[in-house]
Every structure is written in C-alpha cells, then in structure tokens.
Amino acid sequence: MSDSETEADSPVKSLHYNRPAYITFLNRTGYPIDIAWLDYRGNIVRYIKELASGGVYHQNTYFTHPWIAWHSRTLERASFGGKKVFQPQPWQGEQHRTVVYIDRPMKSLLKLCLQTVKYLVRGDVELLEIPKDLHGPLKKRRRIDFVDYTALYRH
C-alpha cells in the first residue's frame, strides 16, 4: 500500500481460511467508501466501490482475513472502532452476522482543513496566499494501489 501516512503496524495480511466469519459492514462516515480485503501477500483487493453513506454490505470471510476501508474520492482511510484495520472474529454458531461499523477517523482541525484544501485545489499550492509551512503537507497526495475484485469477477 502506498500511503502518505506511515503505518506503525507490521505488514498485515491474510493467514489461512479454516475458520469462517460472517460480517456486515455499515458505513457511518457520511460519504461513500471503498472496502478491501488484504490478501495472503498483503495486497489490497477492493471488494466494494462507493458504498453509500448509511449503506450496508454483507461479506462472508475468514477469521484471519483483515479488511480496510477508505473514502472513495479523497482516499482518506476510514476506521473500525478507532482502528485502521478490521480483524474478524470467528463464527461460533451465532444466528446473525457481526455488524462492523465504519466511521471517520478522529482528526485535528488542521488536518481537516488541509484535507479540504487538497480536495478543492488541484493546481500549484504555492500560489495560494497561505503560510509557507503548509505547502509541503498540501503537496502530498494519497494513493492506494489495489486489485479490483469487482472488475475481475464480473459475469
């Protein structure tokens, strides 16, 4: 994954597929999100594109299969209970799916403002009449490299 923020965690990837988990993602972010699985090599495999705010997505998965989500347009990472990566719990005979809430991460006012300016200004940020120490953070653009599962398995 290529991301302007450094991930403090060690590389995350799927380990095995012997304990199923049944989950339902619920988008509470207020904006469309993409949801992806981290495969056995740690590659990002997008499973859903632009799940609407308030949208629900059911997924059969496995205990050691991690999931991530991001804002469909700004690529800002979403969170699962304050965590950047969701690790499912194994199914233990429950008659219902585990509901997984996807939320906006907590950010400082500065980060929120920088994110908005990045979205609105696509050109040369050095032409803006703002403090020069904001130019560097505004030039950083986020990128997520993934394989699109939905495109691979269309019928």
Rank of each mutant, 00 (worst) to 15 (best):
Y57L: 10
K107L: 14
R122Y: 11
T98K: 02
I130S: 04
I130N: 08
M1S: 04
K118G: 02
L38R: 00
S79W: 10
P11C: 00
R73H: 10
L152A: 14
Q92E: 13
T64W: 04
L152I: 14
M106T: 15
L15I: 09
S72Q: 06
S14Q: 02
I44L: 13
D39G: 11
L38F: 08
I44D: 04
P105Y: 09
K139V: 04
R122L: 15
L109H: 06
L15M: 07
S72N: 03
K132N: 06
G81R: 07
A69D: 06
V12Y: 01
S10A: 11
R104G: 08
G55A: 06
Y47V: 09
I68M: 05
V56K: 01
E7N: 15
A52K: 01
Y101R: 07
T6D: 15
S108C: 06
K13G: 07
F63K: 02
W70L: 15
R142V: 13
K49V: 05
W67V: 01
D39M: 13
I68L: 10
L26A: 06
G55S: 09
D39K: 13
E76N: 15
H135A: 00
C113M: 08
L26Y: 08
V121H: 07
R97K: 00
K132V: 00
W70G: 06
R41S: 15
T74F: 07
